[in-house]
Write a protein that binds this DNA or RNA. Structure first.
Length: 239
DNA sequence: CGAATTTGACCCGCGC
DNA sequence: GCGCGGGTCAAATTCG
């Protein structure tokens, strides 16, 4: 068996159980406490997810309204607007990743470490770089990618750092994929093995991926997790 | 050694 | 028609 969740090896803890598992009288009290904590955490994630979705919808509405105003008042080409548009960039400063759509073109904003000079945005698809250019309005080069997963897939993307904020990557997707997103499907499938069927449908793979990333960066979480797992391993060794 | 990336050259649309 | 700028091509280079 080789299963992980949020980067954690589920096989490490001998007490891993789902909430659907019936209670057992000889189950250690500590395990019951842990299950309660797990339940609380799951409820918190649900609330955060709902808030995130409503916030995302609101931001998307604002972006669409702003794009409409910009296209009516400014005859610049769409591709020239993204990095000069400090309004959207400023809004994006407080988001890990935002999307806006316009006629089959999708803009995605992704916050990265400014010291990280790579232009890689992990979106679950395979991309082949076919060009790079320095544009007039931005000293940071723009990279051009084609979807390489399916030869017939027409999707292209451009990735460039924001002129206002070098820590912000702007990706412009052009077209629709004619195949599945393999990585997301894989993550979704692996996640769904560990949750109840009623939760299926509200799950957002990208959101969970981001949450996992932020948890991985949280030293307190890692430390607490390590202590919990090691104590369980020790207990297991003793029995 | 094949795949992926880099990078200069070229193409094309647009404004003047 | 010319120049400019964005987008693409393809040979050279790098990487695993």
């Amino acid at each position: 068996m080789d299963e992980t969740f949020l980067g954690i090896d589920l096989n490490v803890s001998p007490y891993y159980k789902t909430d659907d598992t019936p209670m057992n009288d000889d189950m250690p009290e500590e395990l019951n406490q842990m299950r309660l904590k797990n339940k609380k955490l799951r409820e918190m994630i649900t609330v955060v997810l709902e808030n995130s979705n409503s916030l995302q919808n609101h931001v998307n509405k604002l972006m669409q309204e702003h794009d409409l105003v910009a296209s009516n008042t400014n005859k610049r080409k769409f591709s020239e607007c993204d990095d000069r548009n400090s309004f959207e960039s400023r809004k994006s400063l407080h988001q890990e990743s935002l999307k806006s759509r316009n006629d089959g073109v999708t803009k995605v904003y992704r916050r990265t470490d400014p010291s990280d000079k790579s232009m890689i945005i992990k979106d679950g698809y395979q991309w082949r770089k076919y060009g790079q250019k320095v544009t007039r309005d931005n000293p940071c080069p723009r990279a051009y990618y084609k979807c390489s997963f399916a030869p017939s897939c027409p999707v292209k993307k451009k990735v460039q750092r924001s002129v206002d904020d070098e820590g912000l990557l702007v990706a412009i997707y052009d077209g629709e994929h004619n195949h599945e997103n393999v990585e997301s499907e894989h993550k979704l499938a692996s996640y769904e093995r560990f949750k109840s069927p009623k939760e299926v449908g509200s799950f957002d793979a990208i959101f969970v991926e981001q949450m996992a990333n932020s948890l991985r960066k949280n030293s307190d979480f890692i430390e607490e997790l390590a202590v919990a797992i090691s104590s369980k391993i020790l207990q297991h060794d003793v029995f």
